[in-house]
Nucleic acid binder design. Structure first.
Lengths: 203, 203
DNA sequence: GTCTATATGTAGATAGAC
DNA sequence: GTCTATCTACATATAGAC
């Protein structure tokens, strides 16, 4: 109410979150120390503890932000598309973009497994599920060949997707070639090969 | 030369290796301490350092043993089969058996990623490659549909396979159902569904 | 809101007795 | 070949000044 409330005090929380995401994604949880995070964010370890009570809470915060971001990116990429096969393809591409190209937040979700931090495992699993349920819906809308299990297909798909940061290099070729391979494996003979066929009639 | 060389002194090395494999597979590398390993093996931390100079060397030893074991299991499961599709299917099943059912050694290979231990990464990667090259050969022998990349297919397959310990529970149903799903995704419409058709004629 | 300084625990690794 | 005892470093987290 009194004098100025322009220019709130510099809030380091976003910088801390960014630094933690980058380090957790790069080295994993246990190999990253609180000191590393504080230094990368340009604060001291003591200052960090003003914003977050424990290292685990910091991981959970990064996880939650990562899930928020990848959900936003995937939803935006699907857009208003209504063809289930194309929705599926776009979601795969958006997922790969998020964990390969963009911010480190999404990579933390696939790099740090809930089992790596038993005390936070339940919370981390809940965050993951919040996202993966989107793929449950996308797959349910597909016209799968007889004998295929939607649940198993989703498990295999997520496993293959989330392993890409291990082997992918920007020099591995166009991302669309990789998306093609995913669609060939998991799309069930639908859109064939090639990216986004220029749409002609709706069926 | 002198007196007795019957009954060498009790050698704790195998016990140490077993304990390390179980703990690395269960908790990962960083969350496992030297003290944990020593205690599980029934020795003191000091004794452990008689057998292995560093924690990293212990991991490398477990890794090498794990690769030896999974290679032996997969090769034995393929046996003398000559049909490429069936060789592929048997290798997938053997791989899953090794990381889901059997000893912890194989699970360490898929749980502890080379990047988790930068100082040992090169060595760990070499061990992994020693095994994965088998799948390169198996896939090369398959009759893939046009447009599929053998290399990308292998990357996706290994990712999906190695993620199974995250979600698989013995209650998830018969292993063959999971193998079927893998073959449906990566086998390229070859053996269809169902386990090991009782062989009739060779084509 | 951020600092310096530090408490407290536990990690990896070593020394030397037996 | 295995033990006990311990060194040294560094981890997470806290206390209290500014």
């Amino acid at each position: 109410m009194a004098a100025t409330f322009a220019k709130l005090q510099s809030n380091r929380w976003p910088a801390l979150l960014d630094a933690a995401a980058a380090l957790f994604a790069e080295r994993g949880y246990h190999a990253t120390t609180i000191r590393d995070v504080a230094q990368a964010a340009g604060v001291t370890p003591g200052a960090l503890y003003f914003h977050v009570p424990t290292k685990q809470a910091l991981l959970i915060a990064v996880y939650a932000e990562g899930v928020d971001r990848i959900i936003r990116h995937v939803d935006a990429s699907i857009g208003a598309e209504i063809d289930p096969s194309l929705r599926f393809r776009r979601a795969i591409k958006a997922h790969l973009e998020a964990i390969l190209d963009t911010s480190a937040f999404a990579r933390v979700i696939v790099r740090v497994l809930p089992d790596d931090v038993p005390e936070a495992a339940a919370e981390l699993r809940a965050q993951r599920d919040r996202y993966e349920m989107r793929f449950r819906a996308l797959i349910a809308a597909l016209d799968l060949p007889p004998g295929r299990s939607p649940t198993l297909l989703r498990m295999l798909l997520m496993g293959a997707l989330n392993a890409t940061p291990i082997w992918y290099r920007p020099s591995s070729g166009r991302l669309d070639a990789i998306v093609d391979e995913f669609v060939a494996s998991f799309g069930a003979g639908m859109t064939g090969a090639g990216p986004e066929p220029q749409r002609r009639s709706k069926r």
